[in-house]
Write a protein that binds this DNA or RNA. Structure first.
Length: 580
DNA sequence: AGTTGAACGTCTG
DNA sequence: CGTTCAACT
């Protein structure tokens, strides 16, 4: 249970990263979290098994974001449950059932909002839902794999065997698994924070120097993980201290017993199993098309490995990995059991190479959502800036000022770019889309920011992938083609109205533009205290404030600033106290 | 100071 | 499922 406490302590070795820094790379994606988030918006339909595709849409938007930046995604799905985890699964299933019952009751009473909340807690990402997404992925020629057991282990395998360059997930378990490069908290703009295993020794908040991989793993298990509850009172700090002193879990447990602490008789055995589960969990090897162990069993061949789950014969392995065989029942999944949205079966074929340049990925993002001022890494994310950039670009009076200039600039830039990828350009509909863009749609933040950040590319030195020439490649899968044209019109006008209410945006914009350059170069939490950071947080606060008081449009920028400045400085004070 | 548990948000119109 | 905050040891 203490294992999620690990991430906050690693902030000093986390660095901001944008997906575009991974151009040309491939990444494994923990699909569960995407599906789950996407399912929230249509949880009621899903619980009632009513046809919906919003969760699939959500995932496809993110997939397209990755492809847009020239990153090849491999979506990884969870497979069967490990025997050790059954307890938790039962618990969760029970909780879901309760919430579903509550939801139905609330609904019958006419309390729709309460019902809606309960439905959200009742959503289960069932194999059926995953299968719906898989159908679309097949159509779109996007790589995916269903893990025989846990996605965490599968993704780590893909990373260790160099199938992928990084893993996108929210799960802290990837660290004890030993995954070399992880991207956490990737938002809908492609901005996230990067963790590299090799930097672990340089963590400021937890002295890990001299720790081997094995010691880190044992520390994590000791502090409590999915496979083994921690001893009462044992958290991360104590686990760290013990491992530092005694190096191995055997010696730690011996010492604990010696000190008169009650250790359950099965604890030591369970501990051993937990270690083996992290090290040798069954995963699918796409090369041999067979099930292998995450790392070789060499020394432990004679172990009784029942807790790793039943072994899977080779003839089933490929079927499970491709989603054609249910990992639980081992039965073939009948296509007609699942109603898949009649996707745009295309008049044109589109493989991964059907990149098109020039257009934007839908408008996934503009509206400033409720701000999560997660001062996780001691500064507001770049997302805040992007949110902020958006309104500035859109003109005050969209109908009068034909903001062609900036759009034009980008389009022409595209044309100038040598098409060294296997890019398709200018498919017929692209031109149509451009027209829509020119007249109505403010520039997509991704594009805008991409351009803007060309000048200050100080981030990318971090990891070895050499960047190729910048080129705003946009991938729009056919999956969304049919939707875009109609939707764009109404939504954009709406947005322009709401964004351009007053001079507010402009005023703040000018106040902030000078900061942008500095922003990107500030990477480390140690520099938190600089004024730049302070002001950045104010910026993001501004938006949260703005959302909350959208009824109060006439309040001046000044006031908004002074309000937020105070509260932000409180936050910073707290942070500084904490960090000492 | 560290651990634990409960409460809350995740998305979207 | 993760983060945050308050309470307990």
């Amino acid at each position: 249970m203490g294992i999620q406490g690990l991430l906050p302590l690693l902030k000093s070795v986390m660095a901001p990263i944008h997906i575009k820094d991974l151009e040309g790379c491939s990444v494994a994606v923990d699909t569960y979290s995407w599906l789950h988030k996407g399912a929230l918006s249509c949880s009621m339909d899903l619980c009632k098994s009513q046809p919906t595709s919003k969760h699939v849409d959500y995932c496809m938007h993110r997939v397209n974001l990755l492809r847009h930046y020239g990153v090849k995604p491999i979506l990884v799905f969870d497979g069967g449950h490990l025997p050790m985890k059954n307890e938790q699964e039962i618990k969760r299933a029970r909780s879901r059932k309760e919430n579903l019952a509550r939801a139905i009751e609330h609904e019958s009473c006419g309390n729709t909002s309460a019902a809606y909340e309960c439905y959200q807690k009742a959503v289960d990402i069932s194999p059926t839902i995953a299968y719906e997404l898989i159908q679309v992925l097949k159509q779109e020629q996007i790589s995916y794999v269903v893990a025989p057991y846990e996605a965490d282990a599968q993704m780590t395998f893909l990373a260790l065997s160099k199938h992928v360059d990084a893993v996108i997930t929210e799960d802290s378990d990837l660290i004890p698994f030993g995954c070399p490069r992880i991207i956490y908290k990737m938002d809908k703009f492609g901005q996230g924070v990067e963790f590299q295993y090799s930097r672990l020794q340089h963590t400021k908040d937890l002295n890990l120097s001299g720790f081997t991989k094995q010691m880190i793993l044992e520390m994590c298990i000791l502090s409590g993980c999915d496979y083994l509850q921690s001893l009462p009172g044992m958290g991360l700090k104590k686990a760290h201290a013990f491992i530092k002193k005694f190096k191995t879990h055997e010696k730690v447990i011996k010492h604990l017993k010696f000190s008169g602490i009650v250790v359950p008789p099965l604890y030591e055995e369970s501990f051993r199993r937990a270690i083996l589960t992290f090290l040798h969990q069954r995963v699918y090897d796409p090369v041999t098309e067979d099930i292998v162990h995450l790392s070789d069993l060499s020394d432990n061949i004679d172990e009784d490995l029942d807790f790793l789950g039943p072994s899977i014969p080779k003839n089933l392995a490929k079927g499970i990995a491709s989603g054609d065989i249910d990992p639980f029942t081992k039965l073939s999944i009948q296509g007609d059991c699942v109603k898949v949205k009649p996707g745009p079966h295309l008049d044109r074929t589109y493989d991964l190479k059907s990149f098109k340049s020039g257009d934007t990925v839908k408008k996934l993002d503009l509206p400033a959502q409720k701000n999560l001022l997660t001062n996780y890494f001691c500064f507001a994310t770049l997302e805040a800036k992007r949110k902020f950039m958006a309104p500035r670009i859109s003109p005050k009076h969209p109908n009068e000022i034909p903001q062609v200039d900036k759009t034009e600039e980008i389009v022409s830039e595209n044309k100038a770019i040598p098409i060294n990828h296997q890019l398709f350009t200018n498919l017929p509909f692209v031109d149509n889309m451009r027209k829509v863009q020119h007249s109505k749609h403010p520039i997509h933040p991704c594009i805008a920011s991409q351009k803007e950040s060309e000048s200050n590319s100080s981030i990318d030195g971090i990891e070895g992938k050499t960047r190729v020439q910048k080129k705003p490649i946009i991938v729009r899968s056919s999956y969304f083609q049919h939707k875009n044209l109609e939707e764009n019109n109404e939504e954009n006008t709406k947005m322009n109205v709401s964004n351009c209410d007053d001079d507010d945006d402009v005023a703040v914009a000018s106040k902030n533009t000078c900061l942008d350059d500095v922003h990107v170069s500030v990477l480390h939490a140690s520099e938190v205290k600089t004024r730049v950071e302070n002001r950045k947080m104010i910026t993001s606060r501004y938006f949260s404030q703005k959302n909350q008081e959208n009824t109060n449009e006439k309040s001046t920028v000044k006031r908004k600033f002074s309000i937020s400045e105070d509260s932000v400085q409180k936050v910073i004070k707290n942070m500084m106290i904490k960090s000492k």
